[in-house]
Write a protein that binds this DNA or RNA. Structure first.
Lengths: 224, 224
DNA sequence: CACCACACGTGAGTC
DNA sequence: TGACTCACGTGTGGT
């Protein structure tokens, strides 16, 4: 055990170490530092144990922040702590999944979709269903309202859900009464998509966004 | 390192081990097993290393189930895995907290409360607000309906939220039109509390229930 | 070769 | 005292 430090590039034991030449090298450019093999060996094992200490500390730091997140996890050993963490994660995952089934919860993928309801009657009383999903931010609604107004559309209904810094919205839109009757629904759809995409999808990171690790949380905002 | 096994009840080194008496004891009732100190020492260190192995295995088992719960956590080292677990827990906790602010989410404490609205007009058109929180189960609603009907109460409105196997409900109740006008609201309150408590609070574990670790998840059920 | 992450056995502390 | 948990240093394999 004491002399088990025996990789192929280290001498088998201390005795043979002292048999190896420790004279300065004749070629200065490849002359290594004057530390002996003994010293190199010691510094290697020292740095090894220091690295191991760092690794342990990193893991233990995460464990202790987990401990802060789990109530009554004081005085639990590591395995028990991890066990309750597993339970918490399962529990919370189940709850949020359950909620998503009823609440039309935002995902973490930016998207804009435009649908065309009442296709048969092309122009009169036609409804567009526009949905988007993006990061939530305070100016979002005013920007959306301005964009919708500029396209001469009226919001007939809306369903908005904001959760965990993300927001998902569905608008029911129809052309203004006083707008020209000859408006082409397909070009309107295209313009609407462009407008919404510009507002909802951040241009720099057009999907596969770099998200900040810490999320912001807002209360659901309701469009009136 | 090899001879560092030197607690006060173990001989300092091998040599002294063999100097210790190994003759059978004269008092049979305290005659210990005939294994030598050497053997006892070996079995002790063996059981120690086996216990340590069991501990490591327990911890690693929890880590690998955590790995299954976290997508894309393959090829992460332990510290990184725990880091993303921390993020997930924070994220999910924030989301459920956010939802609880709007949704009147059930807690994990059984309770029944009865409130008295419109106190000034004692008998006519009086409203009772009855809320409960308990484990969800299929027969719950029919039992509640039967209890409410037996007390000659009418459900004017209800707000029910079921989440993670728990359910929280608020009923707005008023006495039936055709029930006697001289019904005493205080005794009605008392009866209602008794009836609801019998239904909602499991008698065996009147609070501080023993919960099964794995939770059931139901979709929110709505009272119509 | 150097670094890293893991598993292992061991010393020390607790109950 | 034994059983258990933790921190530590070391051996080892992978990159």
């Amino acid at each position: 055990m004491e002399n088990s430090f025996c990789s192929e590039y280290w001498p088998e034991n201390q005795d043979s170490v002292y048999l190896l030449p420790q004279v300065p090298c004749y070629f200065p450019q490849i002359q290594c530092s004057h530390e002996s093999f003994q010293e190199r060996r010691e510094s290697a094992t020292r740095s090894h144990s220091e690295a191991e200490k760092r690794l342990r500390d990193r893991i233990n730091a995460q464990l202790s922040t987990l401990r802060k997140l789990i109530p009554t996890s004081e005085k639990m050993d590591k395995a028990a702590l991890l066990g309750t963490v597993v339970d918490h994660v399962k529990d919370l995952k189940g709850k949020t999944a359950e909620i998503s089934k009823v609440l039309n919860t935002p995902t973490d993928i930016d998207e804009v979709t435009i649908e065309h309801l009442n296709e048969e009657e092309e122009n009169k009383g036609c409804l567009l269903k526009a949905s988007f999903c993006c990061d939530d931010r305070p100016e979002l609604f005013s920007e959306l309202q301005r964009g919708i107004k500029n396209l001469k559309l009226t919001v007939m209904g809306a369903d908005i859900t904001s959760l965990g810094g993300r927001i998902k919205g569905v608008f029911m839109l129809c052309p203004n009464q006083n707008s020209a009757n000859d408006v082409c629904m397909n070009s309107l759809k295209r313009s609407l998509r462009v407008v919404l995409s510009r507002i909802a999808i951040s241009p720099s990171t057009s999907n596969y966004r770099i998200k900040s690790k810490r999320q912001r949380f807002f209360l659901p905002a309701h469009f009136s």
